[in-house]
């Protein structure tokens, strides 16, 4: 058996999705660790873009939390620019992948990161809002969403749609004027990996963590994701992934801590 946290599983699964020699728009927090891990183990030539204008940083480790714009996180970039230029690169189609978090998603991969419950004026819980998430989800070719696996986060109707997925289905993005050919591509959770079916643009289960059953993963969701004929078994974090994460990237455990999980190797 191997022991890990739900956060470590998300980071490792997402890191395995990234493609080398491509560009990725990296959001604040967990996506930074995903990119750091991928850069060290899988995609040494991945070019990261931060929304405030750091292009191609080679962030130093250990990870310095909080200040994405600080010297260690934007170390040895190719360019230091500003926000309007970072989004200019995304707007003109230079950014292949984008990676953002979510509080809720629906079947079309639309994202809520603004509020839960209550009314807009008096929300029961208020979150930071879009940040640059709406730009990433609107402009990058393929968006990867990273979210803790809790059934209540998969809803029929979002409390607030912060950033666009496929909106109301096929053709929805183009109809409102979003750049064509863009949209959510994968959803990485702490138990599973989802994609979107080509025809219907609906959330589709692609894989589950080794040892979990499909019903265990889908139970309690407000809608039932589609499933491919062969739902893959996702390997738990490998020793090497955990070693790099725990010893090199986040030795203080500030981001990688979480709910304890275990799986057979």
């Amino acid at each position: 058996m191997i022991e890990f946290t739900d956060t470590e599983f998300m980071i490792c699964t997402a890191a395995r999705l990234l493609e080398d020699r491509k560009t990725v728009f990296v959001g604040w927090g967990m996506p930074q660790l995903v990119a750091m891990l991928a850069e060290r183990l899988y995609t040494p030539s991945l070019v990261q873009i931060f929304e405030f204008g750091a292009i191609g940083p080679q962030s130093l480790i250990p990870f310095v939390r909080g200040t994405m714009g600080g010297p260690s996180n934007v170390y040895r970039s190719l360019q230091w620019s500003n926000m309007n230029w970072a989004f200019a690169y995304a707007g003109t189609g230079y950014v292949d992948y984008g990676m953002i978090g979510a509080a809720q998603i629906d079947t079309f991969g639309n994202v809520n990161s603004t509020l839960l419950g209550g009314t807009y004026e008096r929300p029961a819980r208020r979150f930071p809002g879009s940040g640059g998430g709406n730009e990433v989800a609107s402009l990058c070719w393929r968006t990867i969403l990273v979210m803790k696996h809790e059934p209540r986060r998969f809803v029929e109707r979002l409390d607030f749609m912060t950033s666009p997925g496929y909106l109301d289905g096929p053709g929805g993005r183009e109809k409102v004027g979003l750049p064509r050919g863009t949209g959510p591509w994968r959803v990485v959770t702490s138990k599973a990996l989802f994609g979107f079916e080509e025809e219907t643009k609906r959330l589709t289960l692609l894989g589950v963590l080794k040892g979990l059953s499909v019903p265990e993963v889908l139970d309690g969701m407000e809608f039932r994701p589609l499933a491919t004929d062969l739902v893959e078994e996702i390997a738990p974090p490998a020793d090497e992934e955990l070693r790099v994460l725990r010893e090199q990237i986040d030795p203080s455990g500030i981001v990688i801590r979480g709910e304890k999980m275990r799986a057979a190797r």
């Binding site: 879009s130 709406n134 730009e135 402009l139 607030f160 749609m161 666009p164 409102v176 750049p179």
Partner: peptide, 17 residues
């Protein structure tokens, strides 16, 4: 801009389409 489109963020902002 080609962002905000289709979302509640737009509806609660002061943007126009």
């Amino acid at each position: 801009v080609r962002t905000l489109l289709g979302t509640d963020t737009l509806r609660h902002s002061g943007a126009r389409v």
